[in-house]
Amino acid sequence: MRLDELAEVGPFFALRTGRTDGTGRTGRTGEGGLPLLHEETVRRRITVVGERLGTDDTRVAASIAFQGIAGRLLSIGLGSAVLTGGVPDLATGGLRWEPSRTAPDDLWLPTPVALPGEHLGSTVLHGLLVPLHDHVRALTPISSPLLWGNAGSSLAGSLRVLRSWLLSRHRPEDAARAIALTRVLFADPLLRDTGELSATRTDTTFIRRTCCLYYRVPGGGMCGDCVLRHPPRHSARHSARR
């Protein structure tokens, strides 16, 4: 399965592939990493994200960590479905991850196996994000609707980037396919109530129904798709105490 074009869309769409040379390193760059769907791997990622954000609030770190991983997986899934017509078997294909790295060197799939494009939801949403959601909630007392709202926000962001890239290369049919596939994912019960997606000929917008808690990060501010119009009053006091 050829996924080279994915990296051209952007770093979140990139996926390292190929077997290692026997030392744990691939023929390209980076190490083989750890199994993505492992509680200790997720714990390490939450710690890394908290340190990078400068917050000791584990709910905030867990939320942003989940959103970042969801964005990577959804971008790869949506991008490959549109550009190749298939989806790499991310759920059972031995996907590896290095939680201290950033895109595009964080994810590695040794031998990509193509599944039909209609497996996008079962592979990414149900095969990966459901167990990831469960691991995060086992480690941190965080709202399930919040996490799925993060996934919806990530999916809308993936569509926005992919659609813009396709239109810049005069591929309107593929852009329309990206919108159609995204709408199918948003029809899934996991994402159905996460927000309102609007995709017109000129723009893609999404307003979510939950907040990812990014406003609690020192200097974080508000996200563009946030359900809140202003940060809660207590957040300013909390930041001042820090």
Rank of each mutant, 00 (worst) to 15 (best):
E196C: 01
A138S: 15
V82P: 10
V42P: 02
P145G: 09
L213W: 08
D188A: 13
L228D: 11
D193N: 13
S235M: 11
A7N: 06
H133I: 00
P104F: 01
V124Y: 00
T102P: 00
D225L: 00
L228Q: 12
F206S: 06
P145K: 06
G54F: 08
R229Q: 14
R52F: 07
R45Y: 04
R52H: 12
T29E: 14
G93M: 07
L73I: 13
R183W: 00
L120T: 09
R201Q: 12
A180H: 12
A187Y: 00
G30L: 06
L129A: 06
S158N: 04
I64Y: 03
T41L: 06
W165C: 05
F12G: 02
V136F: 11
D203F: 04
L146R: 15
G10R: 03
R25A: 11
R59I: 07
S80V: 03
S158M: 05
R229E: 15
D193W: 02
A14C: 10
L228F: 15
A175H: 07
R16K: 10
V124L: 01
E5N: 01
A62G: 13
A199N: 07
S198M: 08
A240C: 01
T92S: 15
V49R: 11
L181N: 11
L185F: 12
L115F: 12
W165F: 14
L128T: 11
G117C: 09
P232S: 14
G85Y: 02
G224I: 07
D56T: 13
P116V: 09
R208Q: 09
E118K: 03
H135N: 10
P232E: 14
W148P: 03
L155P: 10
G117S: 12
E118R: 10
F186M: 14
R242K: 14
R208K: 15
L190E: 12
F66I: 03
S235T: 15
H133G: 04
D21A: 02
A176P: 00
D225S: 14
L162S: 09
A176T: 06
E118M: 01
V113N: 05
R208C: 09
G30A: 05
L125G: 06
W97S: 01
L147T: 11
L95Q: 12
D4A: 13
D193M: 01
G30W: 05
G33H: 03
E40V: 02
F12S: 12
D57C: 02
R177A: 08
P172G: 02
W108D: 05
V113S: 13
A7C: 07
G121V: 00
E98K: 00
C212T: 13
A91F: 06
D134Q: 15
R177P: 00
L185T: 07
T210D: 08
A176E: 13
T26D: 06
T205W: 02
L37W: 10
C223S: 08
R44I: 05
R241A: 15
V42N: 04
T140A: 14
A65N: 11
R45C: 02
P99N: 04
S143F: 11
L146A: 09
